[in-house]
């Protein structure tokens, strides 16, 4: 019974990838002959083991390994110290070495703004943004709110402030909390935990009123009815798919914008970067490999399971995106007084 389900998913993935290949035509030919990894490759995840970044790096590893996209073995390690700064310092030190890839999120360019670290995002050679993770406004399963408006109104009217749990401080979760406050005038006490998983358990236990976890961080509790998904901070609803809870699929979660939120969209890119001074040929090689990864069934599987939105960016597209997102984030941080650099 169960293997069948998996097979069905795989088959779906194959079909999707075939369709994708038709739409996009064949992948552009990269100059792969010029550079090839000559020793084991290190994928360094800029967060703790078991979190979203770790799973992202492992999904890429799995796709490369199963489809034999490179000849060398891949090691995934996690250097989550200093909210991931450890990874970037480590990879920065490996100047010009195309065998060390930093796997991160927007923290690649937001960390240097809020923490006194010895790197800038411009130090690195960004390779690709492969996927965008969504943010959902979650409350406890038996909470009396059903949408963005009723929740924020209740938060505004409450005598004691509502508590919003999240992962880390001055990172995506807290930024989004501030954006919600500005949008609605409600006030939250933001309580940082070490990971989104911990935040989710705190909400399930009723110790806080809400959090803005990524889908994969709370799917277990959502399935069990312990959490309620109010809305997703994205322009469009998430991809259609099978029901996750007895009544809802990811697509059934309305967007916050539909419900009258003033926040257009808030998403987090998952990024891959190479050390400073890496030759362009190496960057192109990895961009080519990662592009191929996005066409594998394993990758489709990963996207479905973690409910993320696949969107591949590399080269000048990516640079433009990072510049723009950096500027936007900088503005928010400036208003909050978080900037140190």
């Amino acid at each position: 019974m169960i293997p069948k389900v998996i097979n069905a998913q795989r088959a779906l993935g194959f079909a999707a990838s075939a369709a994708m290949a038709l739409v996009l035509g064949t992948a552009p030919a990269f100059a792969q002959a010029e550079w090839k990894p000559t020793k084991p490759v290190e994928f360094v995840g800029a967060a703790g083991a078991g979190g979203g970044t770790d799973i992202f790096a492992r999904a890429v590893q799995l796709a490369i390994q199963n489809n034999k996209l490179i000849d060398q073995p891949i090691l995934v390690s996690n250097k989550g110290g200093g909210s991931g700064a450890e990874t970037f310092v480590y990879v920065k030190a490996a100047e010009g070495d195309g065998h060390k890839l930093a796997f991160g999120t927007s923290n690649l360019y937001t960390l240097p703004m809020v923490a006194k670290v010895a790197f800038k995002h411009t130090d690195f050679m960004p390779v690709a943004a492969m996927v965008f993770d969504e943010f959902i406004l979650w409350t406890k399963g038996d909470a009396p709110y059903n949408d963005y408006k009723s929740f924020t109104t209740a938060a505004k009217a409450a005598s004691g402030p509502f508590k919003m749990a999240g992962a880390l401080s001055k990172d995506t979760d807290q930024t989004l909390t501030r954006l919600i406050e500005k949008d609605t005038g409600a006030k939250f006490v933001y309580i940082p935990f070490k990971s989104g998983g911990e935040a989710s358990v705190q909400l399930t236990g009723g110790h806080v009123q809400s959090h803005v976890n990524n889908p994969s961080e709370s799917v277990g509790h959502w399935k069990a009815g312990q959490l309620k998904a109010l809305c997703v901070f994205s322009k469009e609803r998430m991809a259609e798919g099978p029901k996750v809870t007895p009544t809802q699929s990811w697509h059934d979660i309305p967007t916050c914008k539909e419900q009258g939120a003033g926040i257009e969209a808030y998403q987090m890119p998952r990024t891959v970067a190479l050390p400073p001074g890496t030759p362009q040929a190496t960057v192109d090689f990895w961009a080519g490999v990662l592009k191929k990864v996005t066409e594998t069934p394993e990758w489709k599987d990963y996207l479905t399971r973690t409910a993320q939105t696949g969107r591949f960016m590399a080269g000048s597209n990516l640079k433009a995106f990072i510049d723009e997102d950096e500027k936007r984030t900088r503005k928010v941080y400036e208003e909050e007084g978080w900037l140190v650099n």
Binding site: G82, V114, A115, S169
Partner: peptide, 10 residues
């Protein structure tokens, strides 16, 4: 020593 979870500063 290191990153402070609560304030996000080093």
């Amino acid at each position: 020593v290191g990153m402070d979870t609560i304030s996000g500063s080093l």
